[in-house]
Measured scan of single mutants.
Amino acid sequence: NITNLCPFDEVFNATRFASVYAWNRKRISNCVADYSVLYNFAPFFAFKCYGVSPTKLNDLCFTNVYADSFVIRGNEVSQIAPGQTGNIADYNYKLPDDFTGCVIAWNSNKLDSKVGGNYNYLYRLFRKSNLKPFERDISTEIYQAGNKPCNGVAGFNCYFPLRSYGFRPTYGVGHQPYRVVVLSFELLHAPATVCGPKKST
């Protein structure tokens, strides 16, 4: 009989979020998941679920829940969905086509923008091939755009693969920082350890 609540607040209220190319993952297990707390949290810009209804989450049990978190621009949030393409979905964070879970995003301009620009948040701009679902690539190898080998030196046709967002408070909404948490639900042939409040007695 599990009684402790799942530590969703640790994920959602973290002081610093990860850059999207180096997205953070927390495994959540052996706890009671009260999703209504999240669902009623006012400032969400997006709360979209795939393969599961957000209002039914509290009735369900899962083997594991993974909480992935990172920061992207407002106009990139739409790429955090199954079957998407674009710089983020291709080179930074890719969801599987059969994704079961929820994508939760909110504007973090007050936290993550600075006058003069916040350059701490990076994304991958160049990559030889697209990421596989949930693949994480933190390499900083110089990207070779031409035929000539770069030998690890940036220059003509040789690019550092990461780019900084440089968030400023005055940017338009599409270019403002958004914090994103992706909850993915794993249902294995194993005992369920993460259940909603109704199922955990």
Rank of each mutant, 00 (worst) to 15 (best):
S29K: 09
V20G: 03
E76C: 00
S19Y: 01
F41K: 11
D68V: 01
S36I: 03
T63A: 12
R25N: 03
V77G: 02
Y178D: 02
A18Y: 06
P43F: 06
S139N: 11
G166L: 07
T201L: 13
F41M: 14
D97S: 10
N40D: 11
A46R: 14
C31A: 06
N118C: 06
H175T: 11
N75A: 12
K48I: 05
R179F: 03
N1H: 08
S129T: 15
K198R: 13
L131I: 13
P161A: 07
V153E: 14
R127W: 02
G116H: 12
V52K: 02
D97T: 09
L38A: 05
D34C: 04
D112N: 01
N92W: 02
A105F: 06
G51Y: 00
T15G: 05
P191M: 07
F70L: 01
A18N: 14
P43G: 07
Y123R: 14
Y171D: 15
L5Q: 11
N118Q: 11
Y121R: 03
A67M: 13
K199E: 13
D98Y: 06
Y159M: 13
C6H: 05
Y93L: 03
P177N: 03
S129A: 12
Y121N: 06
P169H: 09
R127M: 03
K110W: 06
G86L: 05
A190W: 08
V37P: 06
V194W: 09
T170S: 12
R168V: 11
L5F: 11
F185V: 05
G174L: 13
T3H: 08
F45S: 15
V32A: 07
C158K: 06
D98N: 14
V65I: 14
A192S: 12
Y50E: 02
C6P: 02
Y123M: 08
S69N: 02
E141W: 05
K114I: 10
C31E: 07
S29I: 07
A42G: 15
I80T: 03
T55C: 08
P96K: 04
F17M: 06
V182F: 01
S53F: 05
I88T: 03
V65Q: 02
I138L: 13
L38F: 07
V115R: 13
I142M: 14
Q144C: 06
A67C: 07
N130Q: 13
L57A: 06
V52F: 10
Y91P: 03
F70D: 02
E186T: 09
A145T: 12
C195I: 10
V103T: 01
K114H: 12
I80Y: 01
G155N: 12
K110D: 14
Y119L: 11
I138N: 15
T193C: 08
L122W: 12
L5C: 08
F160R: 15
V194D: 12
A14D: 06
A105G: 02
F99A: 00
F160C: 11
N13K: 05
N30Y: 05
Q84N: 05
Y178S: 04
P54L: 15
N4Q: 14
N1C: 05
E135D: 08
V173W: 14
D9C: 05
D90Y: 05
L57V: 05
K56Y: 06
F99S: 00
F12I: 05
P133D: 06
K56Q: 14
D112G: 01
Y123I: 03
D68I: 01
N4Y: 08
D9E: 14
N109T: 10
L131V: 10
L38K: 03
K199W: 14
F45E: 15
A33D: 05
D112E: 04
F99L: 01
Y39S: 14
L187R: 13
G101I: 01
L162A: 03
A67N: 05
A81E: 06
E76I: 00
S29A: 11
S29F: 08
Y159T: 15
F47K: 04
P133H: 05
R168N: 14
V77C: 03
N107Q: 05
Y178E: 02
R163W: 06
G51S: 04
V115I: 13
C61I: 09
A46C: 10
S139Q: 09
D9P: 07
V11A: 02
N157Y: 08
D98F: 05
K48V: 06
V77E: 04
F134H: 10
H189C: 08
G86W: 02
L95I: 12
R179T: 04
D90V: 02
Y66T: 13
S78I: 06
P161M: 03
N4A: 12
R163G: 12
G152Y: 07
S129Q: 13
G174N: 14
L183E: 00
V65F: 08
R136G: 03
D34R: 03
V37C: 11
A190F: 09
V11I: 15
G155F: 06
S53Y: 07
K48L: 04
R27E: 10
V115T: 14
K128N: 12
V65L: 11
K56H: 11
L188K: 15
P82L: 01
T170M: 09
T55I: 08
N118M: 06
K148L: 11
T100G: 01
Q176S: 05
V181P: 00
C150P: 06
G74L: 02
L188N: 14
D98R: 09
K94F: 00
G152D: 13
R136Y: 03
G166C: 09
P82H: 01
G74R: 09
N64P: 08
S200T: 13
K26E: 06
F126S: 15
N30C: 06
L5I: 12
G86E: 02
V37G: 09
A145H: 13
R163P: 04
T100W: 06
K132G: 09
K198Q: 12
L188A: 15
T15W: 00
N109A: 12
V173G: 09
G166R: 12
D90P: 02
K148Y: 11
K132I: 08
